[in-house]
């Protein structure tokens, strides 16, 4: 009984309840989109886009405009720019991500240096903070999660086809460029609404590790789309609770828990499933 009371202790704080809701939904959302990130070999995109959005967040803070508006528009433009540069096959997607996002990140840092007043909120964006979670964050992450679910359900076949076989999908009438641009826009929005809890520097892990773990548990794309969000949501939920009792950073605890799940799945999956990981060489 004492244990039950102790475990419920953090739920007495509103900031924790808000943070827990946002983190759990964010975990599911990142897990869902992470399936496409991992299977498309774009694991670096989460890292890159979160850095790009940081530039927008810094600019919003300095210019005193709404965070979601400033960083959101910035993130979507960065995503579309990456898609545009990567489409010219002279450069790969990795180079496009590197150029666009590091430039954006550098701009954010320069703005921080020049107009240093925005330090606290930018630090929260970099490392995440459950303390700053407000109702608007809950609405935002819930809305984006719902949108992500609708996009994946309605666009399932197009997304699967263009992820598995881009060229054939294109000749079969799928507007692959639109699918890719939509996916990048969705990722940008996801990063935007989750980064205040998870933080820019660790968000890419949430986009990659649950999906990579899910990949080792199944050979079915459809099942992977269930398993990955479940891993993402569960680790965020448990990680948030653990961080309270261990007095550690919520985002760091969540990512460490994700990494632990990955190690366990990797070990349990054994030699046969490790073969499948050859396709995840980019992680």
């Amino acid at each position: 009984m004492i244990l039950a009371i102790d475990l419920m202790e953090p739920y007495g704080f509103q900031f924790f309840r808000h943070g827990l809701v946002v983190a759990t939904i964010a975990g599911a959302l990142c897990g869902l989109l992470g399936v496409f990130v991992v299977l498309r070999g774009m694991s670096y995109i989460g890292h890159g886009l979160s850095h790009a959005v940081f530039g927008g967040a810094a600019a919003s803070a300095v210019l005193r405009i709404n965070y979601f508006l400033g960083a959101g528009v910035w993130g979507i433009i960065s995503g579309l720019l990456i898609a545009r540069v990567a489409r010219r096959r002279v450069l790969g997607a990795d180079a496009a991500i590197g150029v666009v996002t590091t430039a954006s990140f550098a701009l954010g840092l320069a703005l921080m240096n020049r107009y240093g007043q925005a330090g606290k909120s930018i630090e929260a964006v970099l490392f995440g903070s459950v303390l700053g979670v407000q109702m608007v964050d809950i609405y935002a992450v819930s809305g984006v999660a719902l949108l992500g679910l609708v996009v994946v359900v309605l666009g399932y076949r197009r997304l699967l086809f263009s992820t598995f076989d881009r060229d054939v999908a294109q000749v079969s009438g799928v507007n692959v460029s639109a699918v890719e641009a939509g996916l990048l826009a969705m990722l940008s929005i996801t990063i935007l609404v989750t980064m205040r809890v998870i933080g820019t520097l660790l968000i890419s892990a949430l986009l990659v590790i649950p999906a990579a773990s899910a990949r080792m548990t199944t050979n079915s794309f459809a099942r992977m789309l269930w398993i990955s969000p479940i891993i993402g949501a569960s680790t965020c939920f448990v990680g948030m609770n653990l961080s309270y009792f261990l007095n550690t950073s919520a985002s760091a605890t969540i990512i460490l828990l994700d990494a632990l799940v990955f190690v366990i799945v990797y070990a349990v999956a054994g030699t046969r499933n490790r073969m499948k990981m050859a396709s995840l060489g980019h992680i």
Binding site: L39, R157, R158, L160, F161, T163, F164, D165, A169, S172, G173, V174, R215, T218, N219, S220, F221, A222, M224, M275, K276, A278, S279
Partner: peptide
């Protein structure tokens, strides 16, 4: 990509977009 997580049935039906 032969390691992509799809069954034969999924490969064939994915064209029905």
């Amino acid at each position: 990509d032969w390691y992509f997580p799809v069954t034969v049935e999924e490969v064939i039906v994915m064209t029905r977009t």
